[in-house]
Design a protein around this nucleic acid. Structure first.
Lengths: 340, 340
DNA sequence: TAACGCAACGAAAACGTTGGAGTGTTGAAA
DNA sequence: TTTCAACACTCCAACGTTTTCGTTGCGTTA
């Protein structure tokens, strides 16, 4: 076992000072040509690589960005990560990923851990519990310390920082408009409780679109699911005996559960009822029928977030206290669950 | 913007030395009670947190483990990460995730980046390209520097380290045994080409199981898919006019494609043909019919890998050069696609 | 009263790196 | 001969911690 080579060891071996080695490797004109060559050759031979930790300490930069997400076993978040990773790597940054598991405490712990020098900035999507508690002191704290933060997907007005979101309202409207175009009129929605911002916004879009088409809004056509673990049975009960010709589900899982419930009740998709989901994952693509869905373009969101963050990191001197909110376009992907 | 508090600043503010502050915060008996209280109160008030980078440099430990995976937009890998994250967090470790995107070069770059002080050890699954090139010098290099490495899923004999794998052969045999138990005899397999080790091993299991049951092996019942992007049409063609009563697919996607193809040919699943997949993802759970599948227990694999790695990290003094290979049991999850 | 013990604290080195400020030796211009 | 620039280095401080080894001052003991 041969431990890592340091400047000091090279210096001792070649009988020069540490600074000489450092400068030689950086091609400084202060160092004579032959000494430079000798040092470089030695360094290459023994595969010298500077120690990142020491550099971080010195430069007060880690060239690492932290990303904290509620859960990783979730297609949307992985696509976001993928996007972040790509541009981060391109720009010479590393990515540390932590999971909050939707827990407020874990979010705080991870944030504090990473904030103590490990990363230069954050990209994060709030944990469900955090949004419920409406306690953002941990984020405000790191922001006040001068750490750039970019929020995505699950954002909140109280936190003053760059944000990357999709236009949930517009996305939902697109879905409803499409359904109306296809001649559907009795449109239901399967959403989440309102403190999950996306559920709230998509429901708003649903309501607005109906309004714009002059369709009446019936409360009985709106389901807000509380307990994610029991979504199937809640949907089953909700749909029982209801006369709808289209359903807009705010996520993939609700969409598939909806279709299963409809099947059980003897209805055909898309013939009797059209179903549209939100988020374009494996499930949507491969389900039978394949789901028409509003795609969030997670990868693009991640890329935007990374660009925003790194931009802040590299231009901090400006001290421009202006925060941007990038809205990534959604697009409707038409598949079998709405084909007439 | 209030920058991070350091020991030095506390010391200056309270007019004591840095060492006194450090010791007070660590509750050293060297420091007088009242001084201690004063310092602690101040530190708490201004929310002092030691700088991780400085600690890493001093202790030569980062309390961070790196994990490099071929792709993140893949359910199996995310479950592994989830498992790693859980035990790592429990044991006070952070996780850095990097993606190789199945590229040899990116794997090397990420590995070198993380090896220069950023992490204490690695958990990784080899990139496809790396396995094709059979070039493992980058890994051998970091191992020779004394960095513990744990390989999972896609492992290779040439690298001497801890490993976590599943018994693919046994997993496949379980699937076939189950089908035979259910009275199926004409069993086909949809696999990948042989250089993908899992495809090869699962095919071996299939063959062995048939043999053990005294069933003849017919080459016409074996499909090895080359082009992942065209798997659906290859499967369609393969199944055309074939008389099978069960099909074992080596992954989720092939399983769903198989079912779709069967539907198109007017066959019912599971009544006419049973279908079993491999890997338990969202797709398997939510497909109609829900897929019977061989679960790889990715989370458990991740947890095992993390435990193995951290064990090596914390007991390095022993210098026990023995490497373990943990085999995580597969289990058959029975769902609708095989129900008689 | 000198020696000693002890409590309470400070100085300094170390981790690996960088970069500005010195230092010594040459050779050439004044 | 003196002066000075250029060259080719080395020294040192700094980043934030921890920890070992002092160094005080004071009260006790012989």
């Amino acid at each position: 076992m041969r431990p890592k080579l340091t400047l000091k060891q090279i210096a001792r071996e070649l009988e020069v000072s540490i600074s000489t080695v450092s400068k030689a490797l950086k091609d400084s004109p202060e160092i004579g040509e032959d000494t430079k060559q000798k040092i470089k050759a030695f360094a290459k031979l023994y595969n010298y690589k500077p120690n990142n930790i020491a550099l971080s300490l010195k430069n007060k930069k880690t060239k690492t960005i932290g990303i904290i997400i509620p859960e990783i076993v979730h297609h949307f978040f992985t696509t976001v990560i993928s996007g972040v990773e790509q541009v981060a790597n391109e720009l010479g940054y590393n990515v540390i990923i932590c999971l909050s598991n939707n827990s407020f405490d874990r979010e705080v712990i991870n944030l504090e851990m990473l904030a103590n020098g490990s990363t230069d900035g954050f990209i994060l999507s709030l944990a469900k519990e955090t949004m419920q508690k409406e306690d953002y002191h941990h984020l405000l704290e790191v922001i006040s310390q001068g750490m750039p933060v970019v929020l995505f997907d699950r954002v909140v007005e109280e936190i003053h920082c760059d944000k990357v979101i999709i236009d949930d309202v517009l996305g939902a409207k697109k879905a409803i408009n499409y359904l109306v175009d296809k001649g559907r009129r009795k449109i239901g929605i399967i959403s989440t409780v309102d403190y999950v911002s996306v559920g709230k916004l998509r429901t708003q879009g649903y309501l607005k679109a109906l309004e714009e088409h002059g369709l009446e809004i019936e409360k009985s056509r709106i389901l807000k699911i509380e307990d994610m673990d029991n979504s199937q049975s809640e949907i089953d009960a909700f749909l029982e005996g209801k006369d709808l010709d289209a359903i807009f589900a705010v996520n993939e899982l609700f969409a598939t559960h909806t279709i299963k419930a409809l099947h059980r009740q003897g209805k055909k998709v898309p013939e009797d009822v059209s179903v549209i989901g939100f988020t374009d994952g494996e499930l949507s693509k491969n389900f039978i029928p394949a789901l028409t869905t509003v795609s969030q373009h997670g990868e693009r969101m991640g890329a935007e977030a990374a660009r925003l963050l790194i931009d802040k990191l590299e231009h901090k001197p400006d001290e421009n206290e202006s925060y941007k909110t990038v809205i990534v376009e959604t697009s409707l992907i038409e598949r079998d669950s709405t084909k007439v």
